[in-house]
Write a protein that binds this DNA or RNA. Structure first.
Lengths: 350, 350
DNA sequence: CTGAAAGCGCTTACAG
DNA sequence: CTGAAAGCGCTTACAG
């Protein structure tokens, strides 16, 4: 028994006023006599009237809505980031629409990513917060660069923990390099000198940044990370288990393992334990992201926390600046925090 | 350098046709001469024109969009369900807008839930898929019932794994009762006779359903679940750890623990291990939901899988039936699947 | 303070 | 096959 929705005209008629006056009450942008306002409000309440957002947006030419592109909402890193973004956006008067691009392997051409970009633009989002996909490639194809430039010229764009070289897109990122440095420093302090790096994909901005920084720090401290200990298998739990299985077949093995994220670390720990290793007694393992479960698994994960709220507030802040025609910094770095837990321990003497 | 968006008028002018003809090409609802169509398409491509969805929706009086109300997107059960819903919806030509209501303790009056219901209605969603909150109470207040009836009269509504008695809202649910029965049966087979039930909140539909069924099955099989072993502390990892801590202070203890969900089970396992218990040697623990991480933690969780895709397809199916004025079953039950893993083992002889 | 009118960007009968 | 006109539901100058 679907009723057709009421309009301001219905409210006006029932309250004995003009639609303009109803609108004034709705927006609160103009004075209305107390008596009429009361009448209008009572009709609105009685009919449970809700103004049509599409009509409003059409006229206002702004939707007060931001689009968010996310590769995988079932990865806690992204859902936790999304939650923080939503909180920050709401507090600034914006709401969010997510596009879950399912671009798990960071393909440069994900059909769903394209679909969502178009869909969000058609819905007239005022700006786009971009994670993953086109904004995650160290060396984007020139076609992608051209597309992203066109996009940036169409509406304000902020890349979160990613970038697209040569497009001038604003970046807001966690200090992942510092996070890796903290992790390696912590492991060195425990006596570790030999490191593996598991998970991720080459050519993805955050992977390369983490790996390069790990290599640099390990090198400068006099440790080792042999190429056969670098196993970029992906970002999932399975990727972690697989990488560890491969690592443990090597003739020589490191004493510490850096997982590209918490999922890979979890998978790696299971892979190690299934093969008779103890974590951290035989092998130390670290994650990255400090996802909610990491504090509770056994052993709990030594990892790096993103400061989700600060990251989100920075991203929304830059976006709002852009929307209000201010000129925010083109790159914002948000500090991270090392979390030392049970998955790391003293290097085994051998 | 924000450009103001192009309209069909711009396209029409540049292609030398009328706006109507542009529109015909856009919708594909009418024949257009090949020559004009080609001209129009080339202008559209060149300007990267995207029709304004708000103008379209306003006219069509339907948005081809469904609203989804979810209590907590950072809980993998919900994000996995959302992903499945999205896939199912897209395949039927609908897109989804989520409202993350943050109604973690299932308060009957969550401000954010109210905000999102209004916001989604203003955005003219064609239907609402409802999880948590107002649709999760065994005995909803009469005000809530009235509100939900009004809502159901406003647009098609489907409750997923929940219900609201007395409102006639369509339900699509996992067979949680059968899941619990499978779990208890499995534990009985391992020799367990004494059970605790951890997590959840009283008065929440799915909690009561699980607990009641557990009590019934345990009773009928000749087992025991003392009231002091029932600890409804909530749904989080922390809730599980807390409940286990409390349970282990009891003078008599069960040999098996049913967690209301995987998070509670994970928290409970950690709580037990921190107090020197081994899982499953000293205590068997089960979860519910089969969240992605559950297969990888140590010990991996014996749990119940929701058949996420089937659940989502059923929910979207009912919704589409409602939208197309068919009359789907008022209640649809989707079967679940027991997953036996490492967190359960033979009852310790004592 | 209030109402009539115009317009946001589309699409769809209606003629031709 | 094509164009002119009207209208979806709002809001905002413009008069008064």
């Amino acid at each position: 028994v679907r009723k057709t929705a009421y309009t301001v005209y219905d409210i006006a008629r029932l309250a004995g006023v003009s639609p303009s006056t109803v609108s004034r009450v709705l927006t609160g942008n103009s004075r209305v006599s107390q008596e009429k306002e009361a009448r209008i409000r009572s009709v609105i309440a009685e009919l449970n009237f809700r103004p049509n957002a599409h009509a409003r947006t059409l006229l206002a030419r702004r939707s007060r809505t931001l689009g968010v592109l996310i590769p995988d909402l079932t990865n806690l890193f992204f859902s936790q980031t999304f939650l923080a973004l939503e909180t920050a956006a709401l507090s600034q008067g914006y709401s969010l629409i997510v596009g879950n691009t399912l671009n798990l392997n960071n393909s440069p051409v994900s059909p769903l990513e394209t679909y969502y970009v178009n869909s969000l633009l058609e819905r007239q989002v005022d700006g786009l917060l971009y994670m993953g996909g086109r904004v995650n490639m160290v060396a984007p194809e020139s076609l992608v660069v051209r597309e992203m430039i066109a996009l940036r010229e169409t509406l304000p764009l902020v890349a979160i923990n990613g970038r697209c070289e040569g497009t001038g897109i604003h970046e807001v990122s966690s200090d992942e390099g510092a996070g890796v440095e903290n992790l390696v420093g912590h492991l060195f302090g425990l006596g570790h000198r030999e490191f593996a790096f598991l998970g991720g994909y080459r050519g993805i901005t955050s992977f390369d940044e983490k790996l390069d920084r790990a290599a640099a720090v390990i090198g400068s401290l006099g440790g080792r990370m042999f190429p056969e200990w670098i196993l970029p298998t992906g970002y999932s739990l399975e990727a972690g288990a697989l990488a560890m299985a491969t690592l443990l077949e090597r003739k020589t093995r490191p004493t510490a393992v850096l997982g590209v994220n918490d999922y890979v670390a979890m998978g790696a720990i299971r892979g190690a334990v299934e093969r008779g290793m103890r974590v951290p007694q035989d092998l130390s393992v670290t994650g990255f992201d400090d996802v909610s479960t990491s504090r509770f698994i056994l052993p709990s994960l030594t990892t790096v926390n993103h400061n989700y709220q600060a990251l989100a507030e920075a991203a929304i802040g830059v976006m709002v600046d852009l929307l209000d025609s201010r000129t925010p910094a083109s790159k914002t770095i948000v500090s991270v925090e090392l979390k030392v837990r049970e998955s790391t321990g003293p290097a085994a003497s051998r």
